[in-house]
């Protein structure tokens, strides 16, 4: 099962994106655990994830998060601007898969 962690400063906008990503995963019959946390919890929560996507408000933390994520052998990236701006669950999900190396 794919485990995708989203993080943004308070976790509100990403929670909405989570719902859309879950809906997309379900629609293509894939099992995924997708959840969103605020930036303070992200470093702890990434221990349970296969990939981390962060909101634009946090993009300055990408380097710091990548260092932490490297401990778990997972990738971190900023959510694609178009995916975020249009609240596109499908695009965000596909971005996550690509970062996971399509495991």
């Amino acid at each position: 099962m794919k485990k995708i962690l989203l993080a943004c400063s308070s976790g509100m906008s990403t929670s909405l994106l989570v719902t859309k990503m879950e809906a997309h995963a379900a629609s293509i019959g894939e099992e995924a655990k997708i959840w969103a946390v605020g930036q303070d919890q992200a470093k702890k929560e990434m221990a349970d994830a296969d990939v981390v996507l962060i909101g634009p408000q946090m993009s300055f933390l990408k380097g710091e998060f990548q260092k932490e994520a490297a401990k778990y052998g997972i990738n971190v990236d900023v959510i694609d601007m178009m995916a975020y701006g249009l609240a596109d669950g499908k695009k965000a999900y596909e971005q996550a898969l690509k970062l996971m190396g399509d495991k």
Binding site: C8, F60, M81, A87
Partner: peptide
């Protein structure tokens, strides 16, 4: 919903910078 996400996106990008 998308309009709100766009607002957050551009404010968020600015905030990071």
């Amino acid at each position: 919903e998308q309009i709100n996400f766009m607002l957050i996106l551009h404010s968020g990008n600015a905030r990071s910078k």
